[in-house]
Nucleic acid binder design. Structure first.
Length: 218
DNA sequence: CCAGACGTTGTT
DNA sequence: GTCTGG
DNA sequence: CCAGACGTTGTT
DNA sequence: GTCTGG
């Protein structure tokens, strides 16, 4: 799964997409579901949207927190994702994401990032939803089978796209299905980090610093 | 026909 | 235990 | 994903 | 909106 991530190197987005970062963007080390974060919907267009997809037909907002991720294997068919997959694919710009390993109560979080400091572009979908009172733009992140590195920690990982594939993902509905692939493990690393990242209210650069893997106290 | 679901992950 | 909020 | 709430009435 | 279950 992918349910927390970081986005703090603003300039790399400009390098890859020619997007001018939004003027009020602040760096984030702990983006959580139901929060607003930048997504790229096409060349040179970045928008703030809320994480958790709300299909246009949803009667209320209650579905959003369940649609954080979309399985790449079934995204083309599922009623909740089908329309967005055909015409509203986006890139979620990150510098890495978090995964937890271990039994409930003593889970160790890891920050998973690219070995280079390049942008980690996640494949996403977005939607516009309105109930007549308010209008929301929301997004979700595709997942796939994990590679060797992430597989040590979890059963799923986000769909990560290289620069060229990221452009193709947004532009071409024909090319999109073949881009749902497993990013190579050798380009990535997993760093054990503080359990502080579990708290949604905590957001600072120390969250991605290496930390001792915590031992059980008994 | 209408009513109700529409999703993922992890854990047991 | 289970659901909601972030 | 984890953390935190989980409830009502009346009063200020 | 569209599909499935009854």
């Amino acid at each position: 799964m992918c349910a927390r991530y970081a986005f703090f190197r603003m300039h790399v987005v400009a390098d890859d997409f020619g997007v001018t970062p939004l003027p009020d963007l602040v760096p984030r080390w702990n983006v959580a579901p139901m929060q607003f974060a930048p997504v790229i919907v096409s060349d040179s267009e970045m928008r703030m949207m809320r994480w958790g997809l709300l299909p246009s037909w949803a009667k209320d907002e209650s579905m959003a927190s369940k649609l954080l991720n979309a399985r790449g294997e079934t995204v083309a068919e599922k009623p909740s994702f089908r329309a967005a997959f055909m015409s509203r694919r986006c890139i979620v710009p990150t510098n890495g994401f978090y995964e937890w390993k271990g039994p409930a109560g003593s889970k160790q979080p890891y920050f998973i990032t690219r070995r280079s400091s390049e942008l980690m572009s996640l494949a996403g979908l977005w939607e516009t939803w309105s109930d007549g009172v308010q209008t929301l733009e929301t997004y979700t992140i595709l997942t796939t089978e994990p590679n060797e590195l992430v597989g040590e920690l979890h059963t799923r990982m986000p769909v990560i796209l290289g620069r060229d594939d990221a452009h193709a993902w947004m532009e071409s509905a024909e090319a999109a299905p073949a881009l749902i692939t497993q990013y190579p493990a050798e380009d990535m690393e997993a760093i054990p980090v503080s359990r502080e990242v579990g708290k949604v209210s905590v957001d600072h650069p120390g969250l991605i610093e290496p930390a001792e893997e915590q031992k059980e106290l008994f």
